[in-house]
Amino acid sequence: MSSFRAARRMFCAAAETAATPAAGSRWQRLKQSKAGVWFRSLASDYKEACREMVVGAWERPIKASVYGTLVGGALACFYSKPDKSSFEAALLERSNKLGLLSPWIRNATSDGHVQSLIKLRNEGRLHHISLGLISLAYRADFDPDVALYEAQCSNLSVPWRELPQRMLDVGFFGYWWILDSKMKDYDVNEDEFKHLPEHMQHTSPPGIQEVERIEKLHKESWLPPTVEEEETERKEMDRKEETISEKSQTKEQTPA
């Protein structure tokens, strides 16, 4: 019985010893194959590139900061780039703002620009294109769903050289810049001031001292009048009455 157990142990040990080199040789064959050599060279290249990048950033921190800022800014512009739905939402919001105003006080430039965009949108001619970091809104000749030969033929589509003439807005960093610039002072109708002299058509904002003086006068107007103020006002009224009476007596004493 003991001899049987010893023989079994020897057989198991021999089997384990035989299996270990086989596994090791298989792993070695995998490492020495073409795929293994390619993966090892690729990992070595990435490791060397990362090491050079870290060493270069440590030796030239200003250059690394500039490159990092440019890459981060490009990524921020790419992910914050507005799309067609955001342009339509901004357009409808501006249209609602103008709709709340009377036609007599709307800015003609803002109203005309928004109304033209709304018309193109209703006709299906307002299109959008993405150019990586920016987005462009442009006008087309036809709605893409129209069953016309001119609208469906790819050879008659809008050529790239005409895109600058058809461009309506530029989307960059989450804003549509032309639409925002056209909506500046949208509640000021400049046609109302055309009859005024030239020096009155353009007014400059008040300075800090003027604003402080106006605010001080506004706050003082809400305060109750004091006894001294009433006395001063009474004296001024008496003085005015005396002046008026003296003038009237002088006129009476003057011979005709």
Rank of each mutant, 00 (worst) to 15 (best):
M1G: 13
S2F: 14
S3I: 01
F4Q: 10
C12W: 13
A14H: 03
A14D: 07
E16V: 12
E16Y: 02
T17D: 11
T20R: 15
G24S: 09
S25F: 15
W27N: 10
R29M: 13
R29W: 10
L30H: 03
A35G: 15
V37I: 07
D45L: 09
A49V: 14
R51Q: 14
M53S: 13
V54K: 04
G56H: 01
W58D: 10
W58K: 12
I62N: 13
Y67N: 11
G73N: 14
A74Y: 10
L75M: 07
A76Y: 07
C77M: 11
F78N: 10
Y79Q: 04
K81P: 01
K81T: 06
P82W: 06
S85G: 00
S86E: 09
F87I: 06
F87Y: 11
A89S: 11
A90Y: 01
L91I: 08
R94E: 02
S95M: 01
L100V: 00
L101F: 08
A108S: 11
A108R: 10
Q115I: 00
S116R: 04
I118M: 15
G124Q: 01
H128T: 01
S130T: 12
G132R: 03
A137R: 06
Y138L: 04
R139K: 14
D141F: 00
F142P: 01
P144L: 05
A151P: 03
N155I: 04
P159W: 09
W160P: 02
L163T: 05
P164H: 14
M167I: 03
G171A: 11
Y175E: 15
D187V: 02
E190K: 14
P197W: 02
E198R: 13
H199W: 13
M200N: 14
S204W: 07
E212W: 09
R213N: 05
K216R: 06
L223D: 08
E228C: 07
E231Y: 13
R234D: 04
K235D: 07
E236Y: 08
M237D: 05
R239G: 02
I244G: 01
I244E: 14
S245T: 09
E246N: 08
T250P: 00
A256T: 07
